[in-house]
Design a protein around this nucleic acid. Structure first.
Lengths: 162, 162
DNA sequence: CCGATCTAGTTCAACTTTCAAGGACTGGTC
DNA sequence: GACCAGTCCTTGAAAGTTGAACTAGATCGG
C-alpha cells in the first residue's frame, strides 16, 4: 500500500462545495417536482426522454441507459408511472422479451403543464447564478467526468482479449 | 403566465451533462463505499463530519445541517450506524431534548481503513480528469450554486418584517 | 409561575431504491 | 433441434428516504 494521494486544500474545498451544491440542488428539484408534478426528479426525467423519442416510446433498456439508472429501478419507476396513467407498456414485436414504454397523452399533458415551472426552477438555482463563461466551463467539466464514468464495453480496457 | 424562459442549446447541453455526471458519480461512490466500507456515501460523510468535530461529536441538528439532510433522515442514519457500533448517542446535559452523536473508536477505525480507497476513487473519477484551472472553476461554480440554495433564515428575503 | 409557542429529535406510513434471483426469449453451435 | 450462454425485463424483500404527526423539553410574555 502506497501513501494515499490525499486531496489538496483547494481540492478539498472544491469537493465539499460540490457535495453541498449537488445535494442541495437535487433536493430542491425533487421537492419542486414532487409538489408541482407529483413525482420525483428522476421520474420526470423519464417522461422527458420519452417525449423526445420517436413515437414517444423507447425500449426499456435504452431508456435505462439514457437515464443512467438500472433496469430494475426503471421497472419499478415505469410501474408507478403506469399506475398514474402517464406511461403505457407495449410489447415489442421483433423481440418478445422486449417492452416499449410509451408516453400517454395524459403524460404528455402533465409535462406540458409542469415544464415551465421546472425550467424556471433550474434557471433560478443554476443558470441565473452563473456567467456565460461559467456555463461553458461547467459543461466541459461535467462532460469530462461523465465520460470517465460511462459504463463502457466491459472489455474496452482489455483490448488484448479481443 | 409569461412565456417561460426556456434553456438555450448551450444551457441544455450543460444541464444534461450535469445530470449525467452527477448521477454517475454519486452511483459510483455509493457502490465503492458500499463495497469497501459497508455503507452508502451519505453515511460515510456523517462519520467524516464527526471525525473532524471537537471531541468527535456533534449535536444532531448541527450534523443534519452540515450534511444537508433532514433531521428525520439523520435519525434513521444514526440509528443504523449505532447498530454497526460506529456511532454512539449521548445525552446533552444543558438541553435535555438534545442528543450528541459521537464517533466511536471502532467508527474511527473504519474511517482510517477506508479513507484512502475513497479518496482514490474521488480522485480518479473527478480530479484526475480536470486541469487545475477547472478545479478552481468548479469550486467557484459550486459555491455560487450552494449559496443560492442554502436554506436561510425564512425571513431573510422579507426584511420589512423585522 | 402559567400558558402559549418554539425547538430537538423520533416515529410512523407511504414510497423509492437496491440487490439477488428468476422467467422468458434469442442467437449461435454442434 | 437441442443445448448453452447471453439478453430483456420483472419480482420480492430489505434498506433507505420522505413528510407529517408526535413527545419532551425550552423559552418567552405577562
Amino acid at each position: 500500500m502506497n501513501e494515499p494521494r490525499w486531496l489538496s486544500d483547494e481540492e478539498q474545498r472544491t469537493w465539499r462545495s460540490y457535495l453541498h451544491a449537488t445535494t442541495l440542488l437535487e433536493d430542491h428539484l425533487d421537492r419542486q417536482l414532487q409538489r408541482d408534478a407529483g413525482m420525483p426528479h428522476i421520474y420526470y426525467g423519464l417522461l422527458v426522454q420519452l417525449a423526445q423519442a420517436p413515437r414517444r416510446r423507447m425500449r426499456m433498456t435504452e431508456l435505462a441507459k439514457d437515464a443512467k439508472i438500472t433496469r430494475s429501478r426503471l421497472s419499478h419507476a415505469i410501474a408507478r408511472l403506469e399506475k398514474n396513467g402517464w406511461v403505457a407498456r407495449e410489447e415489442c414485436a421483433s423481440d418478445k422479451r422486449g417492452q416499449f414504454a410509451t408516453l400517454t397523452d395524459e403524460g404528455y399533458e402533465v409535462l406540458r403543464r409542469t415544464a415551465p415551472g421546472h425550467v424556471e426552477a433550474v434557471r433560478q438555482a443554476l443558470f441565473d447564478r452563473l456567467t456565460p463563461e461559467q456555463v461553458e466551463q461547467l459543461g466541459a467539466i461535467m462532460r469530462a467526468v461523465a465520460e470517465g464514468l460511462q459504463p463502457t464495453d466491459p472489455n474496452a480496457d482489455l483490448p488484448w482479449l479481443r
